[in-house]
Design a protein around this nucleic acid. Sequence first.
DNA 1: AAGCAACACTAAAGCGCTTTAGGCTTCATC
DNA 2: GATGAAGCCTAAAGCGCTTTAGTGTTGCTT
Lengths: 348, 348
Amino acid sequence: MPAKRSPARRPTMKDIARRAGVSESAVSFALNGRPGVSDVTRERVRRVAEQLGWRPSTAARALSGEGAATVGLVLARPADTLGVDSFFLQLVSGIQEVLAERHLGLLFQVVEGVPDECAVYRRWWAEHRVDGVLVVDPRTEDPRPDLLDELGLPAVVIGGAPDERHPGLSTVWADDAGAMAAVVDGLYALGHRRIVHIAGLSGLAHTERRIRTLRAEARRRGLTGVESITTDYSDAAGAAVTRRVLGSAAPATALIYDNDVMALAGVATAAGLGFSVPADVSVVAWEDSALCRMVKPWLSALSRDSVEFGRTAARELTALLDGGPARTVRVPVPRLIERESTGAARGA
Amino acid sequence: MPAKRSPARRPTMKDIARRAGVSESAVSFALNGRPGVSDVTRERVRRVAEQLGWRPSTAARALSGEGAATVGLVLARPADTLGVDSFFLQLVSGIQEVLAERHLGLLFQVVEGVPDECAVYRRWWAEHRVDGVLVVDPRTEDPRPDLLDELGLPAVVIGGAPDERHPGLSTVWADDAGAMAAVVDGLYALGHRRIVHIAGLSGLAHTERRIRTLRAEARRRGLTGVESITTDYSDAAGAAVTRRVLGSAAPATALIYDNDVMALAGVATAAGLGFSVPADVSVVAWEDSALCRMVKPWLSALSRDSVEFGRTAARELTALLDGGPARTVRVPVPRLIERESTGAARGA
DNA sequence: AAGCAACACTAAAGCGCTTTAGGCTTCATC
DNA sequence: GATGAAGCCTAAAGCGCTTTAGTGTTGCTT
């Protein structure tokens, strides 16, 4: 028996009004907890609505000024870069958890770059599609905060540094600088003096923050064999840079990779070059995931709770939508999980 | 200078009408390419709209029966399972590419399980939020097609087998059965007789299809040491099953893992147990990604173009939205990329 | 017993768009 | 020169909801 292709009209408030024998306005008041109806009527209306399986039409709601009940998230990355990134899906999953409670939808889009991203914001705004947005991968020289300010679109920036120039935006961030300092501390204590940081995308706020911190830490200790090299986060880049670094005259004894994928590729490359980890070179991955326990030696990694990160961001956005003030909240510093890929520097 | 918090009213058709000196209806006709206005008026209206930066309010459009210009995608997976899955983001990225051309939004939600997913469809439908949906991870005994049929929500099922019981749904699928047969063929030719398939989630349509095919191939050849073991796709499960399988009296000589993550974990486990790959045991990963080239030996893997898969699915959905007929389209069979993890069976 | 507030409820407008039903010109037709 | 048809455009209703203004009842006060 083929399922019936029922026309299945969605029930509207008018239907409820008719069945409950009251006016549409009464229904609206009753269902939205506004004063103006007696408790018994309210209850009756609620029951009818329930029984009819009524749900407010977001379109109608949005049109009468209530907002779209939707928040937006755009990911600006070339399609091939977004492969093996566990961080992102976890973040989204945390975001969802909070949004779902409030029946807020998540409009998601992936684009090629920041200019496209800005265009999407403009469109969403003009089309009335979203009530607010979550901005990821903030950059130094970022046009997005200005734009969002101009559009008056509530937004929370995920992973940026506090930004006092845009008091309208909330920021949720982790203290990468502190984490980097801690990592360098640890490596220094193990005797490492030549440290290379295989960084992520140049221009990303957190990349630059890590680079600056590393440089500062090096200067503070008088270290000269310390540098950062930016990449595109890909395994290929991780491998290539590792090859170059370990091939130099006085190769680094410690490598800090800005994600798990590059770290893995780096370890494989090092092994291929005859370097043993951690005897010849220590490796730290900035991002923990199942991957880090899938190779021998297990990778020491900076771990953070990305799901909770997402939850926090979403909570800030809903607070903003409720008319709350913009805030800057810091989530816990990533913790260094010491596994097997870090050890004393050779000869230390 | 702080950016101005401009109230920034969105321009409406009324604004255009006033500026162009015509009625609102004329504007609507002009902008939607309907007859009823002269070419010069149409052009004038278009220019004014452009100049004002007008974009139709999706809410208003949706309300007047035009649909929400949005399609939905819900991912039913426990939060911790969706970590390292490159397939999914690539799929989404392909989907986006097609949707973006048509200015269709993608409403995205992740939930815990299929019942929740059904609830989301109902809600989206009742709230008028989406015009159609993309369904992933079809199951044997799947309640979703019936539901979508009942709601009359256009949908395309991604990765299912053709389903003649739901003529309203489009299906986009790859021939897993064919791929499995080819893999077994190859392994058989290499002398493998004891083959274990570390499968994915039991109940998923493609999991069951692979299992059935493997069983049929084994029977056809009179092989007895062939079996499938279902898992939850996690690296932990991959490792655990591998340990069990290789610890048996007459261990398998070839392992087929239903994703790259488990394959990786499997190889690591095998190495830990003293098995050398591929000398002692061959490994095939059903899903190719950067991971497969990040361990030695490089993993032989079944590769497919997930981005294109997503594009195809999205194209089918837009066709459906345009009133086209439901179709069943097959994307290319995954190709086996032979790398270093497969070889002749010991003693063959 | 008139006056008044308080309460429960309804009528109607409005959000921004589409669409149907005309109205008014113009031009061709016989 | 009346009749029609065609073409361009406007008025108005309607989509499903919120909200403001307003209408009747009560029940209380003096």
